[in-house]
Amino acid sequence: MGKFFAVILTLIALASAYPILTHMYVQPVDISTHGHAIDEQLSDTMAEAGFAFLGAQLLLAFFVWKYSSRKNGVKVKHLPGGAKLMVATAFIFVGTEVLALGVLGQKAWAEVYFTAPKPDALQVQAQAGQFAFYFRYPGADEKFAPLHPDKIDEGNGNYFGLDPANDVEARDDIVTAELAIPVNREIHLLMHAKDVGHSFYVRELRIQQDFVPGLDLSVHFTATKTGKYEIVCTQLCGLGHYNMKAYLNVLSQEDFDKWLKEKASEQ
């Protein structure tokens, strides 16, 4: 039975590694300027984790194969080197691996979080609320009008709580359900939560950031490929969580200008 365990475990280990080795499941294409660092870090980690996984599982299988259900009265042996060898191995191999991953990984993290958006980045506000995203562009005056939560009137299309009656700045703000952005231009996304916690996740952008009620968070990124991509909510926000999504529409600069004009006329 011990040998059977060894065979099954070997098969499981190989079958688990097969889809990774053959790239059966890969991340969606990266359309951001910072994503390559994350992807590299991910594949480095995959290599190290895969090595550790296969190594440990196969060793376990081998030892169980070799040392199980032996003759009665067989004399047990001890591994030369004993626990010291194990501790040394753990510190040397895993320790360096940990340090390497830890240090290298900071580069990818820093590219996203420790750089300031360029001053000419396009500012867009994203609002997450149960269970849809809405986006706001500052309009002709290039100013975001202040928000008044008590003015929110979703039936009337006032998702943000603007007060155009008393607030002239609010009249040219452009509110949309889709996040259209120009390609190859940095976007500074200002994040606002209307009700509970939500998250902004675009797989292709390699961006995930929570919306936290009461906190003014922001992310910045540059998309390098035109196309339509899904924005999904990844923070459990209530019954409609599964259906909370919007589209990121990366357009050429001309198409973006046209789109923005059209949206402005709808307000």
Binding site: M1, G2, F5, A56, L59, L60, F63, V64, Y67, S68, S69, R70, V74, V76, K77, H78, L79, G82, A83, L85, M86, V87, T89, A90, F91, V94, G95, E97, V98, L99, L101, G102
Partner: peptide, 26 residues
Amino acid sequence: TLTITIPATIITLIWLGSLYGANMQI
């Protein structure tokens, strides 16, 4: 978090290393 890997690895290696030369009852 990454450092926790070290004691966890030590535990795993102790298990594996102890299996060496054992008379494993299944």
